[in-house]
Amino acid sequence: MYLDFVTRAMIGGVGVALVAGPLGSIIIWRRMSNFGDTLAHSTLLGVCFALLLNIDLYIGLIGISVVVASFLAFLSQQRLIASDALLAMISHSTLALGLILATVLPGVRIDLLGYLYGDILSINETDLIWIYAANILALFVLAKLWRSILSLTINEDLAAVEGVPVVRIKWILMIVMAIVFAIAMKLVGVLLITALLIIPASGARQFSKTPEQMAVFASILGMLSVVCGIFASNYWDWPTGPAIVVSATLIFIVSLVFGRFYK
């Protein structure tokens, strides 16, 4: 089966947007966007390790994200995570370490710009399989735990008293985030991935009455952003990742206006 590169980009982007809807909504509700940035910034280390150990890129990415997420989950258990400074420290020191490794690794040349802004037009069929496998898994886990996630997002004590395994679910949530970020990295890049999760969900908030509506609308707005972004990028020859994020922002502004009338 041969697909041209624009079609592949569309399919891949839509796949990421699909899971970005519910996950982005959760990130907003739980105020985890700093955590998301930290995960994203650490992924360059994953790229380096994958090259260093000569393993599959995605395995390196997912591996490092899961390690960082688990580390952060552990810190949040110790009640240290509240500190933005700590997140920023981990976020930027892993990025710096990744940048150094990317430069000094012998015989390795990493396309740093592609890494920072994403390279959605270069994704191939194998990438598509990774994207859909990981995202379907993520969607399945989120759907399965949805009610518990809502419960503990509203109030952790109340959820715990009602028998929700709070610590375990928070950990699973961080792992799911880690996997989605690792996969989405190649599409929109380190600097923009959080935007693709946050902006459509913020737009969806304007005309949603239930958490589920917000998750679904966020997915739809995200897909719309991906499609518009790729078209814009093709038409005006813009870098694709940034074009997607700018589309998302424009769609957000429209939904803000639309939401005013709707209410």
């Binding site: 907003i28 509700w29 739980r30 105020r31 997002t153 509203i154 109030n155 004590d157 109340l158 008293v161 009602e162 913020s202 908030r205 949603s208 009455k209 239930t210 958490p211 509506q213 917000m214």
Partner: peptide
């Protein structure tokens, strides 16, 4: 259980 405080994040439609 009725907790002392419960604040629903304004971004969560509930």
């Amino acid at each position: 259980y009725m907790p002392q405080k419960l604040l629903v994040e304004s971004f969560m439609p509930l």
